[in-house]
Design a binder for these strands. Structure first.
Length: 284
DNA sequence: AAAACCGACAACCGCCCCGTC
DNA sequence: AGACGGGGCGGTTGTCGGTTT
C-alpha cells in the first residue's frame, strides 16, 4: 500500500503536483505537507552549489538513484540531500555516475566510428554516442575537439601540401593522424555488435581497497538515509516511514552486505560503475 | 624553481523538442 | 490550440595537471 502510494506520488511528481483524486487516499491534508505544489523555475539561482562535484555529493546521488531511480530530476536533489540544480544532477549521473559508463582511451574502432559518423551527421553527438555503447555524448564531443578535429585538420593541410609525403617518420604522428591512415570503410554494423576493448571499471579496483572503502561509507550512507527519512517524514509519517525502513533494510541487505566494488550487487547485469579518477582517489 | 603555456575534460548555459495540461 | 515545464542536446567555459621556457 505504502509502496504503491509512493510510486503514485513519484509519478505525479513528474508533473510537479500531487493528484489526490487519482491516488484515492484518505490523506485529507496531504497537500499541506507538500510545500511546493506549484511549478517553480527550472533552476533556482540562489543557494545552489556549482562547480566540481565532491565525492560526498556523488555518493549521495548514487545512493539515491540506486534506491529510487531518477523519477524527476528537478525534485531529485531535494530528496537526495543535494543543493544542486536538477540539471546538474542529471548531467553528473548521465555522464559519470550511471552504470555502463566507459572511461579511458578511445579505441581505434571507436575513433573511426566517431570520424565516420561525424562526416555523416555533423555535431550530432548524442546520435554518435548511440553507436558507442558506454560512451557519453559529452566525452565524444570532448574527444573530438581535443584529438580528432585536430588530427583531421592536420590531415587536411598535409594532403594539401602533398609534396611532403615523408612526415619525418610515423613516430612523430599523433594517434589521430595514425587513425586517419586506417581504412575509413568501417562496417558500423560489425562494430556495433563486436565487443569493445576493456576499460577501467569497478573490476579494476583491488578488493582490499574497496573493502576498506565500504567500511568508511557505511556510516555515511546510514546518515544519508536518516536525512532522507526526515525529509520523507515531512510529507506523511506512515507513508514515508515504511519507505524509509524498507529502504534502510534494502540498503543494509543489498548495499552494505557487499562492497561498493561488487559489480554483481550494484549492477547485476554486468554493468560497470565509473566516475572521474579512481575510487582510491575519491572515496578513500 | 617558478612562471607561462597548453591540453584535457568536467561542468555550466541556453536553446529546443516533446509531452502534458 | 496554446502555454508550460522537464529533459535532452550542443556550444562554451572553467579548472586542473602536465609540460615547456
Amino acid at each position: 500500500m505504502c509502496h504503491l502510494l509512493r510510486l503514485a506520488i513519484l509519478q505525479s511528481s513528474n508533473q510537479s503536483y500531487i493528484n489526490l483524486n487519482k491516488l484515492e487516499l484518505g490523506v485529507q491534508d496531504f497537500q499541506s505537507h507538500i510545500p511546493e505544489m506549484v511549478r517553480t523555475p527550472c533552476c533556482e539561482k540562489t543557494g545552489l552549489k556549482k562547480g566540481a562535484w565532491t565525492p560526498e555529493e556523488d555518493k549521495k546521488l548514487v545512493a539515491y538513484i540506486t534506491r529510487y531511480g531518477h523519477w524527476n530530476w528537478r525534485e531529485l536533489p531535494k530528496f537526495a540531500g543535494l543543493s544542486r540544480c536538477g540539471k546538474s544532477c542529471r548531467l553528473r549521473w548521465m555522464n559519470y555516475l550511471r552504470p555502463n559508463i566507459r572511461r579511458g582511451n578511445f579505441s581505434r574502432e571507436e575513433e573511426e566510428i566517431i570520424i565516420n559518423m561525424h562526416q555523416a551527421l555533423g555535431n550530432k553527438w548524442a546520435a554518435i554516442a548511440e553507436k558507442l555503447p558506454g560512451r557519453t555524448d559529452n566525452e565524444i564531443k570532448n574527444h573530438w575537439h581535443t584529438n580528432l578535429k585536430k588530427g583531421l585538420k592536420q590531415e587536411l593541410s598535409s594532403s594539401e601540401s602533398k609534396s611532403d609525403t615523408s612526415l619525418s617518420g610515423s613516430e612523430c604522428k599523433t594517434n589521430s593522424e595514425q587513425e586517419l591512415e586506417l581504412s575509413t570503410t568501417v562496417s558500423l554494423q560489425t562494430l556495433e555488435s563486436s565487443p569493445l576493448s576493456p576499460v577501467p571499471s569497478l573490476s579494476d579496483f583491488s578488493s582490499s581497497s574497496t573493502d576498506s572503502m565500504f567500511a568508511t561509507n557505511t556510516d555515511w550512507l546510514a546518515h544519508e538515509y536518516t536525512v532522507l527519512a526526515d525529509r520523507f517524514a515531512e510529507f506523511n509519517g506512515d507513508l514515508w516511514t515504511e519507505s524509509y525502513e524498507a529502504g534502510n533494510s534494502y540498503i543494509q541487505e543489498n548495499f552494505f552486505s557487499h562492497t561498493w566494488a561488487d559489480p554483481e550487487t550494484l549492477f547485476p547485469h554486468g554493468e560497470s560503475f565509473c566516475t572521474y579518477g579512481s575510487y582510491e582517489d575519491n572515496y578513500m
